[in-house]
């Protein structure tokens, strides 16, 4: 049997490496200084899918929802070994919270179809919610296994996985189809040199149009050429994946949570007491802490 795996991936700002350079003088963050990257745990999910492809017969479809620029991580996925890439991009999806996002992605999964396994990274580093995976599972009426570290067996009917629990691990077995969220327990493979030669040229139709200065007619032959060579990244709008009577569940309209207020965490210049890194300086500090009963 040939398994079909969908991996949901997200392009995110690199929030993990916010250093002094990314801070503005007022202490707030300079978002423009943060590069857009492949969400780290989504790379772990892709790696798990590719390992399963190596061990069992499977095709791997990588799918993302996001801005047109998110095509970059889909190209990256193709260079690492994914068979097919799909981008869902539409202004109607802007402002989605996790509920609206999971709704759109559940419809995207249905549109892709034929899957017996869906993999997501545990969480994305821009929101750190870990909610979208379980919510997609519920919307598709699938069982879920969260925090997966490795897959031990993947048969025609079921999957057996090791996953993290507080203070240990569990081995769980679920019937297919199932959704699993993956933690950073594997080492994502780099892009493959041979695949790079081919797939670095992969593009979405809108990327081709943009490269032709917005001239759709001029882009058409190039799009056809990419399609015939298997280098066209499939691009869907909301109407291609979601029935029109469900549009109210997308974007801001489909999001129950509203942001009331945003405050930047201001990194003020420290007003700490400076202690000299000498025996005398350290000794005086220890003395002070013993005196005020912090120590001892």
């Amino acid at each position: 049997m040939n398994h079909k795996i969908i991996v949901f991936v997200k392009q995110v700002p690199d929030t993990k490496n916010v250093t002094g350079q990314a801070m503005k003088p007022d202490g707030t963050i300079n978002r423009a200084a943060l590069p857009a990257i492949f969400n780290p745990e989504d790379l772990n999910a892709l790696e798990l899918a590719l390992e399963l492809k190596d061990r069992y017969q499977a095709t791997v479809t990588v799918a993302a929802m996001g801005l047109p620029a998110a095509a970059a991580i889909l190209r990256d996925s193709l260079c690492r070994g994914a068979d097919e890439a799909v981008l869902l991009t539409d202004r109607a999806l802007g402002g989605s919270d996790t509920l609206a996002t999971s709704f759109a992605l559940s419809r995207l999964a249905k549109t892709i179809g034929g899957y017996d396994l869906i993999l997501c990274g545990r969480q994305a580093i821009d929101g750190d919610t870990a909610q979208v995976g379980p919510q997609i599972a519920e919307k598709l009426n699938l069982p879920q296994i969260s925090y997966v570290q490795e897959v031990q067996d993947y048969t025609e009917k079921s999957i057996r996985a090791k996953r993290a629990i507080e203070g240990g691990y569990e081995i769980l077995e679920a019937p297919l189809p199932v959704l699993m969220t993956v933690v950073d327990a594997n080492e994502p493979r780099p892009q493959n040199a041979h695949r790079i030669l081919k797939f670095r040229k992969a593009k979405t139709p809108s990327e081709v149009v943009a490269a032709c200065g917005g001239d759709a007619a001029a882009a058409a032959p190039e799009i056809e050429k990419l399609r015939s060579r298997g280098l066209l990244i499939r691009e869907l709008g909301a109407k291609d994946a979601v029935p029109e009577d469900e549009f109210g569940r997308l974007g801001l309209a489909g999001s129950p949570t509203k942001v009331k207020q945003i405050m930047s965490v201001v990194l003020t210049a420290g007003e700490f007491k400076k202690i000299e890194p000498t025996a005398d300086g350290v000794s005086a500090l220890v003395h002070e802490l013993i005196e005020d009963h912090t120590l001892g």
Partner: peptide, 9 residues
């Protein structure tokens, strides 16, 4: 946003 903002939702 990686802890760089505090949001009230």
């Amino acid at each position: 946003f990686g802890g760089n903002i505090i949001a009230t939702i």
